[in-house]
Amino acid sequence: MENETDLTVKECKTRMRRAAIARRKTVGEAERTEAGKKLMNQVQKLVSHGKHATDAFPSDTNTEANAANGDRCNVSLSVGASVAAYVSMGTEVPTLPLLEWLLSQELRVLVPRLGRGRDIGWSEYSGENGLQEMPRNAAGGLRPKEPYGKVLGAQAIEEATIVFIPAFAIDLDGLRLGRGGGWYDQVLGFCRPDALKIGVCWDWEFIDQYGAVPRESHDIPVDAVVTDKRIIGISKKNLAINGSAN
């Protein structure tokens, strides 16, 4: 049986999620399209191809001093390295420009295959034309488009150097407010220890406070946040990753 604290946390998350959705619905289509391009541009500052990034983020940006003087986090990926991302849906910041750019860098791009409910699976993204519309879930909610190709198991994410994760809110602890299904709570447990976990949200959804997102025991914080306007380092992780070809 759920205790009172659990119910309070869940109720708080539900209220936050509803408020986020209401705010997102005020974004016009033109602004949404532009945000997708800007998101891609931000990731380009972080990910270099065959060399260290020249405009990577400080690993701790909680103050202006840290933003200027924090350790640098450089991510260098070689041809064939794996990156896990997702196909945006509904009111999320569009990720198709990002997915297309990652693919153009000759990276292996994994996106979710949701299957039944909380089943974890992945497929390789081959381009927008390789995506299919999915029926709504049992509760009538939207589901993201999925590739036509082979379904890979949950362990496929173990090969990913970078993992992009959707969020409705992220705070200074790196805790994120997800869609509520618990899918990514399971997924992050399969990530390799040195994988860079990057939360993606609208810029106003990053909360510059500690403890703003209610925490549950299974929550795994992200290492960084990318919005349509900026890159925010959360953890002390200072990576110089060289992803290898499969």
Rank of each mutant, 00 (worst) to 15 (best):
E2K: 11
N3C: 11
V9L: 08
C12A: 15
T14D: 07
R15T: 14
R17Q: 03
R18P: 06
A20L: 05
A20K: 06
R23D: 03
T26W: 03
E31P: 02
K37E: 15
L39C: 11
M40A: 12
M40S: 10
Q42S: 13
Q44N: 12
K45C: 15
L46F: 11
V47M: 06
H49D: 11
A53W: 07
T54G: 02
T54D: 10
P58Y: 04
D60F: 07
D60I: 12
A65G: 09
N66K: 14
N66L: 14
G70Y: 06
N74R: 14
S76R: 11
V79W: 12
V79R: 10
V83N: 07
G90N: 06
V93I: 13
L96A: 13
E100W: 06
L102K: 05
S104L: 00
R108A: 07
R108K: 15
R108W: 08
R108L: 02
V111C: 11
P112S: 14
L114D: 05
G121T: 12
G121M: 02
W122M: 01
W122D: 00
S126M: 09
G127C: 07
N129M: 13
Q132I: 10
P135R: 12
P135S: 14
A139G: 03
L142Y: 08
P147N: 08
Y148C: 08
G153R: 10
Q155C: 13
A160Y: 05
T161C: 09
I162H: 03
F164R: 00
I165Y: 01
I165N: 02
F168T: 02
I170K: 00
D173G: 10
R179P: 01
R179E: 05
G180T: 08
Y184V: 05
Y184C: 02
L188V: 03
F190N: 02
R192C: 08
R192P: 01
G199R: 01
V200L: 09
D203M: 10
W204V: 14
G211A: 01
R215M: 10
R215C: 05
H218Q: 12
D223T: 11
V225A: 00
V226S: 00
R230N: 13
G233M: 06
I234V: 13
A240Q: 13
I241A: 04
S244T: 15
N246F: 10
